[in-house]
Computed example of a mutant assay.
Amino acid sequence: MQTILHIAIILGTLAGMEAFSWFIHKYLFHGPLWFIHRSHHQHRSGWFELNDVFSLLFGGISMYLIWEGRAMLDTKFWIGLGISIYGIIYFIFHDWFIHNRLKSFKTTNSYLLGIRRAHKIHHKSTEKNPSEEFGLLLASKKYFKQFNQSAP
């Protein structure tokens, strides 16, 4: 029973991180923290950009929670693990698949193609505003329509 609770905490944390990430991306990164996030909307000449400081911050929070909850494997541990898993998903989806920080893989998966398309639309603007689609794993249906139509 406790294993189910731990899995539920991790899954809840993943869902919470997606909602939280959408919120801070829209209202903080494209708001008062634009001076940092701007680097992500500009051409990058090296591997790192100033925006990566946010990943370091969330990684630090995750490590802190895991460390604090390690002795009893309490809720802090499982939340920290969920944040860490979200970070891994973020790296794979965002940095590797969407922005090609590593050699990208090819896919015909309609979900992945829709997410990539929504993110590319988000980056269409190199300015703070206007912008749309602030999520990582979720996007508006309109970005998936082209890929979900079956051939006659």
Rank of each mutant, 00 (worst) to 15 (best):
G31M: 05
M63Y: 06
L102K: 09
I98C: 11
T75D: 09
A19T: 09
K141Y: 05
H43T: 14
L11T: 11
G87P: 05
M63L: 14
L5R: 13
S125M: 05
H30W: 07
F77Y: 15
L57E: 04
L137V: 10
G46D: 09
E68A: 15
G82A: 11
M1Q: 08
L56Y: 06
A151S: 11
G59Y: 08
K76M: 12
F97L: 10
F105A: 08
L56R: 01
Q2Y: 07
G69C: 02
F20L: 15
K76G: 03
N109M: 07
S125Y: 06
H41D: 00
N109K: 08
I36R: 00
F93Q: 14
W47S: 03
A8I: 14
L50G: 02
L57H: 03
H6Y: 14
F48T: 04
R38M: 03
M72Y: 05
F147S: 10
A139L: 01
I89E: 01
G82C: 08
L138H: 06
R116W: 07
I115W: 00
K124R: 10
I66R: 11
P32N: 09
G69E: 03
I4K: 13
T126R: 07
G12C: 12
L112N: 02
F29I: 05
F20V: 08
H123Y: 10
F147Y: 15
L5F: 13
M17N: 07
G69H: 03
G69K: 02
A8L: 15
H99N: 06
P152Y: 09
I98Q: 04
I79M: 14
N129A: 06
Q42S: 08
L65K: 01
D52Y: 12
K103N: 07
F97C: 04
K124T: 07
T3E: 07
Y86E: 02
F58H: 06
H40T: 01
P32F: 15
L113T: 04
I88Y: 04
I9C: 05
I79K: 05
G87R: 07
W78S: 09
I115L: 15
H43Q: 13
S150N: 12
N148H: 11
Q146W: 05
G87Q: 07
T126L: 04
I66S: 04
K26H: 13
S110R: 13
Q146I: 14
H94F: 12
K141M: 02
I4C: 06
F97G: 02
S84V: 00
L112D: 03
S140M: 02
H43Y: 12
H119K: 02
M72E: 13
G135S: 15
H6N: 15
L138F: 14
W96P: 01
L136E: 06
D52M: 10
F29N: 12
Q146K: 15
G60F: 06
R101M: 08
G135C: 15
I89P: 00
W67I: 04
S104N: 08
G80I: 00
I9Q: 02
M63C: 11
L14W: 11
I9N: 02
M17P: 00
A8G: 13
F91N: 00
F54Y: 13
H30R: 10
T75V: 15
L50F: 09
F20Y: 13
S62N: 04
H119T: 01
H122I: 05
H6A: 12
Y111I: 15
I24Y: 15
N129H: 10
S39Y: 04
A118F: 04
G16K: 02
W67P: 00
Q149H: 11
S39L: 04
P130I: 03
I121C: 09
F144N: 02
L11S: 11
W22A: 05
N51V: 12
